[in-house]
Design a binder for these strands. Structure first.
Lengths: 126, 126
DNA sequence: CAACATTACATGCATCCGCATCTAATGCAA
DNA sequence: TTGCATTAGATGCGGATGCATGTAATGTTG
């Protein structure tokens, strides 16, 4: 429709983002009681095996610092992660995923991948 | 980093969306007092020259029906669009952009395009 | 050490969104 | 026409977000 490649790319991003976020919200929410942000944070944490500074997490996730703080609070309330003070810098907070958190992530991962595979099935390069 | 093309695409979409939306919010907001949703609706409306059913708009925009209703309400309060009842179907609502709306859109368009050009400058196909 | 700037994270607040629901108008069947 | 289902759009509500700010710990400068 458009002839401007920048605009085309933007519209592609917009459409895929909307569709994927909507589907993720529905599927992850219905099947595992997780929001997309919760899953994203959990997903980052399983890939860092040790404890993780909130600060570091903040740089890896597409969330503001305040939003991340609240996502972690929700995850903690659900027993999926635990917070602990940093010994060397007592302003800092360590977060580590619990066994329950790992289990839920493992359970939700196929759902997550399935949704994305469905939505990006037309984007395969060959 | 990843080897899964679906995941790579998803991460690309996520990163570009976050960066673009954030930049659009800041630039459009600071310079023209417009949110990205407001601009998107305005942008659709200038490309339909006549009056437009809200219903039609709803299918073209990445917003829920309720969100669209409120965006239109904000635009109307700002004097950028006007609502009118549909003569043939009195449940329906026509919206048309005002001169002020056209002017603001024309003013904001370069800002919008500049932000996107900046963010997608690395995505040029050659 | 004292005073001040900075950093890490938490939180009050306003805003925006989607879902569910409401109202009013239309369509359709008996 | 009457009664009921459907549709268009508005709105109450709860939840999530970002900005600005608060609190506490750390660094820094004199």
């Amino acid at each position: 429709m458009d002839t401007d490649p920048v605009l085309d790319t933007w519209h592609y991003v917009l459409a895929k983002y909307a569709k994927a976020m909507c589907a993720l919200e529905r599927e992850l929410g219905d099947k595992h009681d997780l929001g997309p942000s919760e899953f994203e944070v959990l997903d980052r944490m399983v890939n860092h095996d040790s404890k993780l500074r909130v600060q570091v997490l903040c740089g890896e996730v597409h969330l503001s610092q305040s939003a991340l703080s609240r996502v972690i609070a929700r995850l903690e309330k659900a027993g999926l992660v635990e917070r602990g003070v940093c010994p060397d810098d007592r302003r800092g907070v360590f977060v580590h995923i619990t066994d329950k958190g790992r289990a839920l992530h493992a359970e939700a991962l196929p759902t997550h991948r399935a949704v994305l595979a469905e939505i990006f099935s037309d984007s395969l390069v060959s």
